[in-house]
Design a protein around this nucleic acid. Structure first.
Length: 862
RNA sequence: GGAGGUUUAGCUCAGCUGGGAGAGCGCUUCCCUUACAAGGAAGAUGUCAGCGGUUCGAGUCCGUUAACCUCCACCA
């Protein structure tokens, strides 16, 4: 028997291991079933999972579990990402603790350390997935650096290369001096920072004339090749063709004209550093200027910088500025707030840097995706749809993707240079005479491999791989909007190009989880919440239910302890409801398909059927919160507060047949509830399912409940009774009437109170119907909220009169409103007929309620 | 400079195709009723940010203003 209190720790322990052992989540490939596929967004092997991962996977897992319940062949494919820079940085940091740099131990040894790190953190992640209860198919787990995926990466690189979609070029890229690697544009985060604008005085070589030039990065002056002014700038264009002195190093710089310069902006004259600024680079290209690099890879100054060689870029900036000032060429400095690029991973300021890198030509790939999205039949669907605009806009304005990284941890670029001829060899297989070739030192952007995830994990490049044939394209991609560009867009063009298809039918994008005050969770604020701590305290089910029912697709949500507790309360409620049911099932109870007998059975079946249909519809359009809240309401209000209360008299009564019927109903309802909730709260529902059906059963093998037919009239009757009962209970307590006292109620209307309904009334509120009309007891529908009692026995007349008065006023208002609408010619002419009739009925019912209540008032007053 | 989001009960937020405003928590009153007091019953509270428009009818659609937020792109 279940414990008195729900204990999440006890319930959740050991379950996941058993599920895996039983193979419930291994996709069987049953051809009679519809395939449903989700590939997990592979977490980085850099550390622990955070709340965002928990959110991601809660959504994916609940979808998978739902589709399993629906009898589909579900594949939830797990895997992890090697996370190039991020992991390498972690391993570097670990080595640093031991006083070693990666260069001390070399590439091979470093990679070994990295693999050790990987297996360590993969373990952690597996444990966390287990705690999260994920129904992933471990027989198909992948890693972005495993053999198969590496083969896919090589294949893709080679094919792009041969199609001219990958090229090598010298360009200004974003350089991370900390990680000493190039970055792609989206790995750069622009942050507003306070900086300074320095103004320096430049002297012409042939006269005493001077002019000012402003810069935020004085240290780059060692890479300057000219000064630029606008050809039409009347104040400055006379300088074009002359020469000036670079105050940093005394170099003679030509002054040129270029329309890039904005007249009137700054001083009107700009220094040009082609190797350290993308715009300057363009100018230098146009004018055929040299492009000297003045910085080392680690952000220190190089040999071009004389006395500053070896100094850090920022230190050089300080000292150089001071020196120029001492030489009298410093004009002023201003504090400014400007956007500066920072490395997404290391956080350091990114240096625009001229460098030879590999790029993917994005235009044709992006255009293919955009064109394909025009077809409403076969396009990817975005939830919420607005993200498709963001997605499309990004693709429309896309620039080439810098994919080479000067790292060791990653997919090595499959390009070989001939030691003598310099010839380039790019094939999946290395050249036969490998000793004559040198492989490119660089590795690929980590996103290059994740871009292939939906098909590389299924066996591609083997086009005939059975999983690829069966499970691709995948069904749903559930992830945060923050990686729409990084990942979703790149999967989209990769799948288009290599699979000639979309990678997934639906993209569900959720928001970020913020802290209780709505701030972003961050390490520096220390406001991050570890999902594992939450699980330890409240259980995985509470966490999942919280995440799934308190979020709106695409919007950020705030973490809330209060709402986690509310989720816990709900599960505890479910637990106790189950306990009630189980306590009332006798030894050796045999389950049968129940048949509704009592009116309340019909009513609860209708509520169940409505809830099932609506929950399914909502889950299928990814409105998990709506579906979850409906289930919550059904369980708490309909099942617990009403149905269970109704069953008490039956179960305590003498009528054995009725008892048995009630037990069958309860067992059926409990099982249905448990199944419906299992996608959200898999652990506790498993516990309850087994308590009901036996230790060896599993909710993982259950199917979506079968609906049972009900009688609508009986269901309607109970709907009304519930309202009567609630009203009556309120009266009883407010007026301090004893339960034994008979409260006389007068109802009029359509509903026939048969014995079973009378029994309910008697059981629930000791209410006895004594008014008889034409030999039958009648009650009046209370949909409009009115209720009329003969209150002769009620002690507190004043209070009752006040209540009636209030109600009369309300009705009066409603009648006025209704009359207003019905006398509106526009409404009568244009509203649908059903609406008009509905309104007329309402009006009639308000008026009759009003009349009845007025009589009551007179009667009571007299 | 572009694109988008948010503004609804004291707090946190739902409210998806326009037809009498909801939940959780909190608050008030009553109840230890034999599944649950982390419970049960009842109850109060809203110029749905402002303005304008469309409509018979707008929290919901359109425009506009304001505040806050996010992303993208950026000029030395």
């Amino acid at each position: 028997m279940l414990d008195q209190k729900y204990d999440a720790g006890k319930v959740e322990a050991g379950k996941h291991a058993k599920w895996i052992e039983k193979g419930y989540f291994t996709a069987k490939g049953d051809p009679d079933k519809k395939p449903y596929t989700i590939v997990i967004p592979p977490p980085n092997v850099t550390g622990k999972l955070h709340l965002g991962h928990a959110f991601d996977t809660a959504i994916q897992d609940s979808l998978c579990r739902y589709h399993r319940l629906k009898g589909e062949d579900v594949l939830y494919l797990p895997g992890m990402d090697h996370a190039g820079i991020a992991t390498q940085a972690k391993v570097d940091a670990r080595l640093k603790e031991q006083g070693i740099s990666r260069y001390d131990i070399g590439r091979e040894a470093f990679l070994q350390k990295a693999w050790e790190w990987k297996s360590e953190y993969a373990d952690t992640i597996h444990k966390q997935w287990e705690k999260l209860g994920l129904s992933v198919d471990y027989t198909r787990e992948r890693f972005t650096l495993d053999e198969g995926l590496s083969a896919a990466v090589k294949e893709v690189f080679v094919r792009y290369y041969k199609e001219g979609l990958i090229y090598q070029g010298k360009r200004i890229i974003n350089w991370d001096p900390e990680a000493k690697t190039a970055l792609s544009n989206i790995e750069v985060i622009h942050k507003e920072v306070e900086g300074r604008m320095y103004y320096f005085r430049y002297h012409l070589t042939d006269s005493d004339e001077t002019f000012d030039v402003a810069t935020t990065r004085p240290e780059t002056m060692f890479g300057d090749v000219c000064v630029v002014v606008h050809p039409k700038d009347e104040k400055l264009n006379h300088l074009i063709g002359k020469q000036c002195i670079n105050p940093a190093n005394g170099d003679v710089l030509p002054i040129i004209g270029d329309e890039y310069i904005e007249i009137g902006f700054g001083t009107g004259a700009m220094k040009c550093t082609p190797a350290h600024d993308p715009n300057d680079y363009e100018i230098a290209l146009r004018h055929g200027l040299p492009m000297p690099i003045c910085m080392n890879e680690d952000g220190t100054m190089n040999e071009l910088c004389g006395e500053y060689e070896g100094l850090d870029r920022f230190e050089c900036r300080k000292r150089l500025t001071a020196r120029i000032e001492s030489e009298g060429n410093f004009v002023k400095e201003e504090k400014i707030v400007h956007n500066v690029g920072h490395s997404e991973r290391t956080g350091v300021m990114v240096e625009p840097y001229l460098s030879k890198q590999w790029f993917v030509r994005m235009k044709p790939l992006a255009e293919d995706v955009l064109a394909h999205q025009q077809d409403p039949e076969t396009k990817m669907n975005f939830y919420p749809p607005r993200f498709e605009h963001t997605f499309a806009q990004w693709l429309e304005n896309i620039e080439d993707w810098c994919i080479s990284r000067q790292l060791w941890w990653g997919h090595r670029i499959p390009v070989y240079y001939h030691k003598e001829t310099g010839e380039i060899y790019c094939e999946v297989e290395p050249p036969k005479d490998i000793e004559n070739w040198t492989q490119d030192e660089d590795v690929l952007d980590t996103w290059f491999s994740s871009a292939l995830w939906p098909f590389s994990t299924l066996g591609w490049p083997d086009e005939d791989a059975p999983d690829l044939k069966r499970y691709f394209p995948t069904s749903t991609m559930g992830t945060g909007y923050d990686i729409l560009f990084f990942w979703v867009a790149r999967m989209a063009f990769s799948a288009r190009h290599f699979m000639k298809d979309i990678p997934f039918k639906d993209v569900v994008l959720h928001g970020l989880i913020r802290d209780e005050q709505g701030r972003k969770m961050s390490k520096s604020l220390g406001n991050g919440i570890d999902p594992m701590d939450v699980i330890d305290q409240y259980g995985c089910d509470s966490l999942r239910f919280f995440l799934l029912t308190n979020s709106t697709p695409g919007l950020d949500m705030n973490y809330s302890t209060e709402k986690i507790e509310a989720s816990w309360n709900f599960i505890n409620k479910l637990w106790n409801a189950a306990r009630y049911v189980l306590l009332n099932l006798p030894e050796g109870f045999e389950r049968k398909t129940p048949e509704p007998h009592n009116p309340i059975d019909h009513w609860i079946l209708r509520r169940l059927n409505e809830t099932m249909a609506s929950a399914a519809a909502n889950i299928e359009r990814y409105e998990l919160a709506m579906a979850g809240n409906e289930l919550y309401r059904f369980v708490w209000e309909d099942f617990c507060s009403s149905y269970i209360e109704f069953t008490k008299s039956a179960l305590n009564g003498e009528d054995e047949v009725r008892r048995e019927e009630t037990r069958q109903m309860l067992a059926y309802l409990l099982e249905a509830i448990v199944c419906l909730l299992s996608p959200y709260i898999p652990f506790v529902t498993e516990e309850l399912y087994q308590a009901l059906n036996g230790e060896e059963t599993s909710v993982n093998e259950a199917r979506w409940p079968e609906a049972i037919a009900y009688d609508k009239e009986k269901a309607d009757a109970v709907e009304i009774l519930i309202e009567i009962i609630r009203e009556t209970r309120a009266l009883r307590s407010e007026n301090d009437l004893k339960p034994s006292r008979k409260l006389e109620a007068v109802y009029e209307g359509k509903l026939k109170i048969d014995e079973s309904l009378q029994a309910i009334l008697t059981d629930m509120c000791k209410l006895q119907i004594i008014e008889k009309l034409e030999g039958e007891t009648m009650v009046r529908p209370l949909k409009d909220g009115s209720l009329s009692f003969r209150l002769a026995d009620i002690v507190d007349k004043e209070a009752e009169l006040a209540k009636i008065e209030k109600e009369l006023q309300r009705l009066q208002k409603e009648i006025a409103r209704s009359r207003g609408i019905l006398s509106n010619p526009g409404f009568l002419a244009k509203a649908p007929e059903a609406k008009i009739n509905e309104e007329k009925e309402k009006q009639a019912s308000y008026e009759s309620a009003y009349a009845t209540l007025l009589n009551k008032k007179k009667e009571l007053a007299s």
